[in-house]
Design a protein around this nucleic acid. Sequence first.
DNA 1: ACACTCAAAATTGTATACAAATTCGCATAC
DNA 2: GTATGCGAATTTGTATACAATTTTGAGTGT
Lengths: 233, 233
Amino acid sequence: MIKERKNTLRDSVFESLKALIITGQIPPGARVTENDMAARLNVSRTPVREAFNRLERDGLVVGRPRQGYVVTEFNLTMFREAFDIREMLDGRATELAAANATAADKARLRDMLAECERLAAIPDRSTREQFEELQVGIDLHRVIAEIGGNEMLHGMLCGILDKCQQYVWTELLWLDEWQLTREEHTGIVDAICAGDVALAGERARAHVRGSRENILRLLQAKSDYQGFFAKAS
Amino acid sequence: MIKERKNTLRDSVFESLKALIITGQIPPGARVTENDMAARLNVSRTPVREAFNRLERDGLVVGRPRQGYVVTEFNLTMFREAFDIREMLDGRATELAAANATAADKARLRDMLAECERLAAIPDRSTREQFEELQVGIDLHRVIAEIGGNEMLHGMLCGILDKCQQYVWTELLWLDEWQLTREEHTGIVDAICAGDVALAGERARAHVRGSRENILRLLQAKSDYQGFFAKAS
DNA sequence: ACACTCAAAATTGTATACAAATTCGCATAC
DNA sequence: GTATGCGAATTTGTATACAATTTTGAGTGT
């Protein structure tokens, strides 16, 4: 049995499955069964079942009684809903961060920005390095929410960011927009470090709005939404 | 084995436990064990475990590995966090409802208001009837979010409302504020029926702010917060 | 009277056995 | 060739047995 670093197998399985889904290694629409996962992770069905329950609660998989589970597929409606909420949550979390950030917090955010810049400056970088920059960019929002101090808000935002991360890792979109994303992230962190609550919040909201429009615009470019979204059956 | 009306025992147990907790029949701080619940509901531990998992995910119970579960206790921090989020979510949901409500939706809201008025007009009403009015008043917000059409937002708001409902059912506070609550609810529904998006949203946010101040003020009236909140150990 | 030790009890974590339901494929009839 | 029906295989739902850990409490020594 796998003993990664968590206390219980349930948590290990949950984290493993979540990572597999968010990174697109198990794509949206893919069917996942308890037995397969149990065999793959070398554990019994029990912890796998409990992990599936939590994943379903987080909206990463959908399951119908006695019919198995399927990795949640993307659709336009879900994106509009998620980004509408994320604009509020991310904006508020960033306001709180601007109000509460300590010197150490600010240094941490600066470090993450520097890491993004470093990864961006690598010539002819690999896909792995591109993924790393995406990861750090999304983690930046998680850390900002953590700094904000509202744990409930932090948890909710992380749930939505999981879905966003699943999307960018699966589709690897807006490759030409990374420069803009870095600039917006820098602007948000600048406002937080300056303690400008209103500016930080508004920049965060504008950033989320921009991401939403960017994604929706790219989706529009696809001629057939159904064909684009349906990854499997 | 109990076969209420759900397909699976897990769902039945989850709903039963959730109801017991939200209505204060199992008070905050109370210890809950899998065996007790399994015996109480006449099922095995397996569906009870899965229900506990979901309850923990929803923040209604907290559990530590191999130490059992405890019904989540109230504290000031949690209230500030929850109401800060609820103000955003409820405000947005109400805006969406004002934009999307059909004639049938509006009639449904009116009916709920009328039910509140009917229950309020009963002279020397029983505790049961008071609870009913509280229930309908909180359900009003759930229905408004449902009408808004953003399912994700609806689900998130329901989670927070569960905690609010647990609180009022457990403590039965602000008995003298019910008249004000009814007036605010009426104002919100009026704005929704008029299709005034901005007004509906602002009234909803003001209503949540008022509820928060009301609760915090009552908490201040208690001399010892710790003694007030700690219901059991 | 107090502190310490150790064993027993209680409780959750995991594995496995069995039941119920759904799905899929093959055979058969038309 | 197509449709239909039935049965095997697959998959989840539930129950139970066992393992691991924590808690509890009695007993003992000082």
